[in-house]
Design a protein around this nucleic acid. Structure first.
Length: 203
DNA sequence: CGCTCGATATTCT
DNA sequence: GAATATCGAGCGA
């Protein structure tokens, strides 16, 4: 038995996968101080990135040393270093007629290992521990060492498990991009209290 | 609260 | 040389 969405789940249009990932669980089995700890959180914010049809995507110009995972098997971790400061984690996903694609995981509701995640982050507030793409990689001890890992197997040190689908999901423009800013490829669970205040939907 | 700015890898122009 | 799928410190109001 595998509790994880399989490759079929990720072999769909990237935006569909990004929407479906809201409510699933990101699980990290980290080796810290000689002990294996299980850290996890519910995914509440994602963004889809495509191929040459998507001017905002790392894959828009074709493969490079950094983005290779976006062109490989689906369901793998694409971890990259951004602004010389932070890691971001994606899972590769695309329909069968596309050449590249990935879904950026942007925010989590912490579930397991909250105290450890706080320590890794240097914070004490669960609202601040994983409420952004750079924050959640630090909270879950995700670095380029995890690039390429198969996220469809519960045996992996970094994987995604099935969760409870959100009651409603909202689509918005993606954050921090300038090209294709009109495309609604960011998905959030608007009922989550763990979205950062800045990204909170105004009613 | 909101704004500016530094950090500085990777890629593109 | 410039831009970028970010974050937090420092500052002023």
């Amino acid at each position: 038995m595998n509790d994880c969405p399989g490759t079929g789940f990720y072999s769909r249009p990237t935006a569909d996968v990004a929407r479906s990932l809201i409510g699933t669980i990101l699980v990290r089995k980290a080796r810290l101080h000689g002990k294996t700890v299980r850290l996890s959180g519910r995914i509440i914010e994602t963004e889809a990135y495509g191929h040459s049809d998507d001017p905002a995507s790392h894959a828009r110009m074709g493969p490079t040393p950094r983005n290779g995972v976006m062109f490989g098997h689906v369901g793998r971790a694409y971890v990259y270093f951004i602004y010389g400061n932070h890691f971001c984690v994606n899972v590769s996903a695309r329909s069968r007629n596309e050449k590249a694609g990935a879904v950026l995981i942007r925010a989590l509701e912490p579930i397991q290992g909250i105290k450890i995640m706080n320590k890794l982050r240097g914070v004490s507030d669960p609202m601040l521990v994983a409420s952004g793409p750079g924050k959640l990689t630090q909270a879950l001890d995700i670095t380029s060492l995890q690039n390429g890992i198969d996220m469809t197997s519960a045996a992996s040190e970094l994987h995604i498990e099935h969760g409870v689908r959100a009651g409603n999901i909202m689509a918005t423009p993606r954050i921090g991009i300038t090209r294709s800013a009109e495309r609604y490829w960011r998905f959030v669970d608007p009922t989550s209290k763990y979205l950062s205040r800045k990204l909170q939907i105004k009613v």
